[in-house]
Amino acid sequence: QVALSRTQVCGILREELFQGDAFHQSDTHIFIIMGASGDLAKKKIYPTIWWLFRDGLLPENTFIVGYARSRLTVADIRKQSEPFFKATPEEKLKLEDFFARNSYVAGQYDDAASYQRLNSHMNALHLGSQANRLFYLALPPTVYEAVTKNIHESCMSQIGWNRIIVEKPFGRDLQSSDRLSNHISSLFREDQIYRIDHYLGKEMVQNLMVLRFANRIFGPIWNRDNIACVILTFKEPFGTEGRGGYFDEFGIIRDVMQNHLLQMLCLVAMEKPASTNSDDVRDEKVKVLKCISEVQANNVVLGQYVGNPDGEGEATKGYLDDPTVPRGSTTATFAAVVLYVENERWDGVPFILRCGKALNERKAEVRLQFHDVAGDIFHQQCKRNELVIRVQPNEAVYTKMMTKKPGMFFNPEESELDLTYGNRYKNVKLPDAYERLILDVFCGSQMHFVRSDELREAWRIFTPLLHQIELEKPKPIPYIYGSRGPTEADELMKRVGFQYEGTYKWVNPHKL
């Protein structure tokens, strides 16, 4: 086992960053958080920038500027975001240094004079007029057009580079997404736009490419001749908990499936790229999406959770019991969808996408189930092999396979070949997804960000279904809070070829 401390991990990262040409360590950078008073800024962006600063992973002359409508001070920003920093008493001095680099400007999102004030403020910072500028839009999409237009007109660096990070949702359907994309691309070049999907920053999602293309053993079996089906799962054990009003506007397909799960599907299904260059990788992902037809209604199961009468606390409440959810809402909190990649490698292999709230566990994984062994000599005792990439929690890679049961006879039983990170790298604290992705933006690497043509294809696949749901308002199937979801989803999976045995229990190697 390799035991690495946080300091050692960050030392390795620093070495990698400083050796590259793309990370300008000594240049002045300004990180501007648009929507600095909001939840995302408070819980994710400010803490992430602090962790990067604490670990010495930001360029040395980096300033952080918050911008929002609320009249706040840096002290206010500190008060609301610091509880999420997880700072230790030993880091007190470092924390003071961090907040000394912070400033805040209040202004409207659609007022040109406010942006001119913001620009004057940035120019007044040390070497601010020639600094590289990175704008993070932690804002609702309704203000994107006004904000990007004003940034472009008043706040661009004339000497350094300018980059803009856009948070999902990128529209509600193909038409609104196209409108937003066309607007942003009329102001910024594609190499300046970073559409963030934080799932692409997760260690195991990034590991998929290495697993596939750096190991000879997987190449020959990664196709329709050997793989019976692919299941991509995202499960949350909690409901909307008072935030249903926002969720109800989008629903589970827009929230998770059309982005996170579809991105994971691309990494499983794509061909080997010409290189690890950002556009070479994204070219292959677009090719996969172009091979997927629009979702067919007979390959869809929609569910909505109801309270568990035997549960406790939140578990007793259904989705419609959330006071922020519109009365009688038919918005799905669970969806199972089957897609097919219609190309030579994957023809006929079902890709089953499942996601839901208020389920029995927290889990995100990719599961490849292989065909049955031909010419069975073990009297149907063999179960199908599976390769599982567990994204969260407890990152893991393992192969479910058959071995001989101890004893006199040739009785096979299920076991696993474990390729888990935790076994080799004991207690290594890896940077989280937002840390990686923000560092990628500083480096100018777009590999783990969504390109406009990729986004367009993703919406093309799901828009007809979303429009049909909005028009017909089908009643989702009720499922109990804390269950596996509607049984109809299991029946759909069985119908397209997935075999669920229920006889195997994964042993978490992190707890051995």
Rank of each mutant, 00 (worst) to 15 (best):
R362Q: 15
K429P: 13
S278Q: 10
V338I: 11
V256D: 02
L320A: 12
E413K: 11
L471S: 14
V366H: 00
L417G: 04
P478Q: 13
V281M: 10
V349G: 04
R484A: 04
K363T: 06
A315G: 15
Q380A: 15
G356W: 03
N394C: 07
R456S: 13
I477Y: 14
R254M: 05
N343L: 05
T503M: 13
T276V: 12
T403V: 11
V281K: 04
T331D: 00
H260W: 03
N394Y: 12
Q380R: 12
L430Q: 08
I352P: 00
P464W: 08
D490E: 08
T403A: 11
E342C: 13
K505T: 14
T333M: 00
H371F: 07
K383Y: 14
N385D: 11
P323V: 13
L302W: 07
P486H: 03
L320Y: 07
G311H: 09
M257G: 08
Y481V: 15
Q392M: 07
F410H: 15
K429D: 09
E435G: 09
K429F: 09
D432P: 10
P309S: 11
K363G: 05
T333R: 03
Y504D: 04
D283N: 11
G328E: 14
D322M: 06
D432F: 09
T403F: 14
A274E: 11
E470M: 08
T276N: 10
L455Q: 03
M447D: 04
M493C: 14
K317D: 15
K405V: 10
K505I: 11
Y421F: 09
N423K: 15
L471A: 15
V428M: 10
L492S: 00
L387F: 08
E501H: 13
V373S: 07
N299F: 08
G422V: 15
L353E: 01
M408H: 11
E386S: 05
K285H: 00
M270V: 06
N385W: 03
E395R: 05
A274Y: 11
P350R: 02
T463N: 10
M264Q: 06
Q369M: 06
A335G: 14
P406E: 01
T399I: 10
L466I: 11
R495Y: 13
G303D: 02
E488T: 08
R456Q: 11
L267K: 05
S445M: 10
E271M: 05
G303K: 01
M493Q: 15
E342L: 13
C355N: 05
L261I: 07
H448S: 12
K404H: 00
V256P: 03
R354N: 01
R424F: 04
R451H: 04
E457H: 13
V256A: 07
C382G: 12
G303F: 04
T276R: 10
I292V: 12
T503H: 09
F442K: 07
I469N: 09
C382K: 12
L419K: 06
C355S: 08
Q380D: 14
V450R: 02
G318F: 00
L353T: 03
V306T: 15
N277I: 09
L417W: 00
Y479D: 02
K317N: 14
Q296I: 13
N411I: 15
F334W: 05
N298D: 15
R484L: 00
P464T: 09
P464S: 11
L492G: 00
G482D: 05
E501V: 08
I253T: 10
F498E: 03
R424Y: 06
I469P: 00
E271C: 07
V496R: 15
C266P: 02
Q296H: 15
E491S: 13
E470W: 08
L419H: 04
F442G: 02
K290H: 09
D418M: 04
D372T: 07
Y425K: 05
G444C: 06
E395F: 00
S293T: 15
Q369S: 05
T276K: 12
V301T: 11
A332H: 06
F351S: 02
Q263W: 01
I477D: 12
R362P: 08
T463G: 05
H379I: 07
G485V: 00
L265K: 02
L261M: 10
V300S: 09
V341C: 11
E472S: 13
Y481D: 02
G375H: 11
V281Y: 05
K272H: 06
Y425M: 05
F378S: 05
L368R: 04
Q304V: 06
E414K: 04
L455D: 05
H467M: 10
G502I: 06
N394I: 06
W346L: 00
M270A: 08
Y421T: 03
K285P: 01
K404E: 01
P486F: 03
R390T: 07
V338Y: 06
N259Y: 02
T463H: 02
F334E: 01
E491N: 12
L439T: 13
V295D: 08
S445P: 05
P323G: 11
K426A: 12
H467K: 12
K405Q: 15
A336S: 15
L387A: 07
P393F: 01
D321I: 04
V341W: 02
P478T: 09
L302I: 09
E312L: 13
F442C: 11
P412I: 10
K383H: 14
D418K: 05
N277R: 13
E365D: 09
M493N: 11
A358M: 04
Q304P: 01
F409R: 14
Y500S: 06
K494I: 12
N360K: 06
D310F: 13
L359Q: 10
T333V: 00
E491D: 14
E470Q: 12
V256L: 10
L492W: 10
K285L: 01
I292R: 01
Y398E: 01
T276H: 08
E472Y: 13
L289R: 00
I438T: 07
F410N: 15
L359N: 03
F410E: 14
G497F: 06
C266A: 09
D280V: 13
K505G: 12
G328I: 09
V301G: 00
E470G: 11
V295T: 13
L439A: 11
V391C: 03
G356D: 01
Q369E: 02
E395N: 07
V397M: 11
N308I: 08
L267N: 05
N298A: 13
Q446E: 00
I469T: 13
E361W: 00
V256I: 13
N299I: 04
E342H: 14
G444L: 01
M264H: 02
Q381T: 12
H260E: 01
C382F: 13
N298I: 11
K505D: 15
K426N: 14
C355Q: 04
G328A: 11
I352D: 02
T503Q: 14
V301E: 09
